[in-house]
Design a binder for these strands. Structure first.
Length: 825
RNA sequence: GCGGCGGUGGUGGAACGGUAGACACGAUGGACUCAAAAUCCAUUGUCCUUCGGGACGUGUGGGUUCGAAUCCCACUCGCCGCACCA
């Protein structure tokens, strides 16, 4: 007879089939249910090929939380979907000729297969994909709502253009001047595009970060990206052309130190200003060169400062000085007003510019008590509170902070400026000149102009086309039959918008649709969404810290303003998981040959071992390198637990397992350890996502059971059933199997165990005896013994005697049930 | 430059201001076996040791404390995000 052994290949599919047959993980929209709700969500995957280990970690993590919440009495919503539109599928289509829809659907099938095979407890009745017309119908509907409210608009602007992908990109999708997708250098192009007015929400997006439980570094990144700065807007007048130019400055206290004035090359007035001056030709040449430079080259802070004079001057409002005007590419059109005052004594960039052009440098702020500051030094250092104004007219002598305020008040009174706040955040550019995305539901009529597609005509379906090759305009533009339509307003011939939406639009609201996925008359029923939302636990990679997470927050706020939602933030708690690196410590990539395929791991060790291992590797928010021997170790642990269950299956009569009454000896040790493990796993899982130590606690329990093979049967049954119950969120199949072998019951239907307080503490404990803070001995003491008793016990030990060695005892610190520290002079 | 995070054995990592190194990997020795696999047991921070134990140990230097990996200050190294943002 073959030896019985742990065989995940047999156990896992058996339970998966049962869960599927019984729809175990489905949850209804019964919003009057008494039990508390919990919405556990992992970021939806972009389906490409097959899932990788990062997905395994993501979903194993979320699944553990979903299981834990279910067993602690919550109604858990744990859905799944696919972020199905996007460039990779389209680029693949160009290369291989396989239609994006076909390749995407194929990949979705693979993801679906593996999520089942991993045993993730998903409510499959709510599955969705963003490329399905019944989903993007409502993406388009939301777009039209935004358009109605002025939150969607068209504007011509200098936008980032990727020459490889042949499309514009959002600021957030440009990393170090390169396209996030393909890594090519991005160019600037002056184009008319669709934007979402996210900047209207800058302040609220910033403020509400304080209301959500997110990792500090993610909040910091968002704050950074929003980039709020306080300062003043100040008007400089050009008398020659009779135009006022406002600048934004965070340092109104340095206004008297302005010695020149600079405009961005994109500033619309640059040519007008230079016209007729002897500098006109130089200006044209400089501006043209600046505009054709790549974003990377131009954005390099280390590049020497360049620029040309405009041949004009502006008046400094505080002292009437005439400041020469320049155009220089270190000034950005997209921030502030596209023009700055140059204060070389107190700004590094202005200092470099002034030095290069021989402009005067006049310090106006100096350390209190000090004399003339070192000019070069001053421009480069951060400023402190302890400074006063110098060379500043009537403000001279004031401290810098008070002076700043006084100058702003003066500016306001004179009508030449006011306090002002600036944000770094730009509006979200959402149009893309690509095929595989959600069509923008807008029609251009020669008579009526821009007309929305009427709601009843939604969705505007993406047509099938043959040629995906981008040519600087959307491939949809070539689908003449589709483009040509009639104006919904006047009925004349009109043309459809051919750009598609950024796929981040699709994923900015999917978590709302899960709540009410089959609604065909509205994107959702507000009562249902208000019941499930916000997402209680959201899990995903930190790479979405800005893009997806900022856009989703914006969506919720905008939709709440339209009374479509009753909350302000989509994700209450966020957990950002670390990456799984290759065994060599590098990011996994096929070129490095260090990619771990989850399919292979699952085949060799089973889904439970794979899931359990990725949760055991270390703190889940940290990166961790893959180790084959590490998975084997976890597999061994699961097999040990299985053998314990298998041994009991032969002996026990089944039935519910209870903690034995008044256990003694080995039995007591096991009962205590089991309760310790319950307490440990519960506190590690609840709130702090410390699954690595939770799993370690179950390992300890299992090790303890092996050390006490002679313990009485009820105690062993209790300990093994407890181990199975506790391991279930991390290794659901094995937990289920062992629990069933020991008790005949379904563990997922059992409430999460409660630790018995009485069993958490023993009658005796090991008293640590210290002399001057160093451990010198240990002795067994009764739990709850008095301070005096403990002190006596400690002083009597050999180790303490030796080290006190007749010296004077200054004092004795007693920590009850823990230690005694004898302080010796 | 600005913002955030971190530095603990051979490795991944544990550790409410209270026994540093849980758990796991690896290594060494042993049991079982004809042998191997699987499994089980023991040892495993460094150095010294008369084998009782002792000294030293959490990036570096200082401080607070009876007691510091943990709190404070300075430094240093590393990682991540943003960056000519006025």
């Amino acid at each position: 007879m073959a030896e019985r052994r742990y065989n995940p290949a047999e156990i896992e599919p058996r339970w998966q089939a049962l869960w599927e047959r019984e729809h175990t993980w489905e949850v209804s929209n019964d919003i009057s249910a008494e039990a508390e709700k919990s919405y556990v969500l992992e970021m939806l995957p972009y389906p490409s090929g097959e899932p990788h280990v990062g997905h395994l970690k993501n979903y194993a993590l979320g699944d553990a939380i979903a299981h834990f919440h279910r067993r602690t009495g919550h109604r858990v919503l744990h859905p799944m979907g696919y972020d199905a539109f996007g460039l990779p599928a389209e680029n693949n289509a160009i290369k291989t000729g396989v239609q994006p829809r076909v390749a995407t659907d194929r990949s979705i099938a693979a993801y679906r297969h593996w999520f089942h095979r991993w045993g993730i407890s998903i409510d499959w009745s709510r599955e969705l994909a963003t490329h399905e017309p019944r989903y993007y119908h409502w993406t388009q509907w939301i777009f039209l709502k935004f358009l109605e409210r002025g939150l969607a608009y068209r504007k011509e602007a200098a936008v980032k253009w990727c020459p490889f992908d042949q499309t514009v990109l959002a600021n957030e999708q440009v990393i170090d001047g390169r396209c996030e997708r393909c890594g090519n250098l991005v160019e600037l192009r002056q184009l008319e595009q669709w934007f979402f007015r996210i900047t209207d929400y800058a302040q609220r997006l910033l403020d509400d970060l304080d209301t959500i439980d997110w990792p500090e570094h993610v909040k910091a990144m968002q704050r950074n990206w929003i980039g709020r700065s306080e300062g003043a807007e100040v008007t400089f007048r050009s008398e020659e052309v009779g135009i006022d130019y406002a600048v934004f400055t965070t340092r109104p206290d340095t206004l008297f130190g302005a010695t020149f004035f600079v405009m961005a090359p994109e500033h619309p007035d640059v040519f007008k200003l230079a016209a007729g001056t002897e500098r006109e030709a130089d200006v044209h040449e400089y501006v043209n060169r600046a505009l054709t430079e790549s974003a990377e080259v131009r954005g390099d802070a280390d590049k020497p400062k360049t620029g040309v004079p405009l041949g004009r001057t502006v008046t400094n409002p505080v002292n009437g000085e005439q400041l020469p005007m320049y155009v220089a590419d270190y000034v950005l059109m997209e921030y502030g007003t596209g023009a700055v005052m140059g204060v070389p004594a107190h700004d590094q960039r202005d200092y470099e510019f002034a030095t290069a052009f021989g402009l005067p440098i006049r310090p106006v702020v100096a350390p209190a008590g000090g004399d003339e500051p070192d000019i070069a030094e001053e421009a480069f250092t951060a400023h402190t509170d302890d400074e006063r104004l110098i060379n500043s007219g009537e403000f001279t002598g004031m401290d810098a902070v008070a002076g700043r305020e006084a100058i702003v008040v003066w500016l306001e009174r004179q009508g030449v400026g006011h306090a002002s706040v600036n944000f770094r955040l730009r509006d979200w550019l959402i149009s893309r000149q690509r095929y595989w995305g959600c069509p923008i539901p807008v029609i251009y009529c020669p008579r009526d102009g821009l007309v929305s597609v009427p709601e009843e005509d939604l969705p505007v379906e993406l047509p099938e086309i043959e040629d995906y090759q981008p040519r600087g305009r959307s491939p949809l533009a070539a689908a003449e039959d589709w483009v040509r339509t009639t104006c919904p307003r006047c009925g004349r011939e009109a043309r459809r918008e051919t750009d598609t939406m950024d796929t981040f639009v699709d994923s900015s609201w999917y978590y709302l649709r899960y709540c009410d996925p089959h609604n065909d008359s509205a994107p959702w029923d507000r009562r249902i969404v208000d019941y499930w939302m916000p997402v209680d636990t959201y899990i995903g990679g930190v790479e979405h810290a800005i893009l997806h997470l900022m856009y989703s927050r914006f969506f919720v706020k905008a939709l709440a303003d339209m009374d479509l939602l009753g909350f302000q933030e989509p994700f209450k708690t966020l957990f950002t998981q670390g990456m799984i690196l290759g065994a060599d410590g590098n990011k996994m990539s096929s070129s490095k040959g260090n990619v771990v395929a989850p399919s292979e791991i699952v085949e060799r060790f089973g889904a439970d071992a794979a899931r359990c291992y990725v949760l055991f590797m270390g703190p889940l928010d940290q990166d961790a390198a893959w180790s084959d021997t590490g998975v084997e170790g976890v597999y061994r642990f699961l097999a040990r637990l299985w053998r314990l269950g298998d041994a009991l299956a032969g002996q026990s009569k089944g039935g519910a397992v209870r903690q034995p009454v008044a256990p003694e000896g080995d039995a007591l040790v096991l009962v205590r350890k089991a309760n310790w493990a319950i307490d440990k796993v519960t506190s590690d899982v609840r709130g702090r996502f410390a699954f690595n130590t939770a799993i370690a606690a179950v390992m300890e329990l299992v090790n303890e059971i092996y050390r006490h093979p002679e313990a009485e049967l009820p105690a062993r049954r209790f300990a093994v059933a407890t181990a199975a119950s506790l391991v279930f969120p991390f290794a659901p199949h094995l937990g289920t199997e062992v629990y069933e072998m020991v008790t005949g019951r379904r563990v997922w239907e059992e409430p999460w165990p409660d630790a018995d307080e009485d069993m958490l503490q023993a009658d005796t404990f090991e008293l640590v005896c210290q002399v001057n803070g160093r451990v010198r001995d240990r002795v067994t003491a009764a739990t709850g013994a008095s301070r005096e008793e403990l002190e006596q016990l400690c002083l009597a030990t050999q180790g303490v005697q030796t080290h006190v060695d007749g010296n004077e005892i200054a004092k004795v610190i007693v920590v009850p049930n823990k230690l005694v520290n004898v302080v010796v002079k």
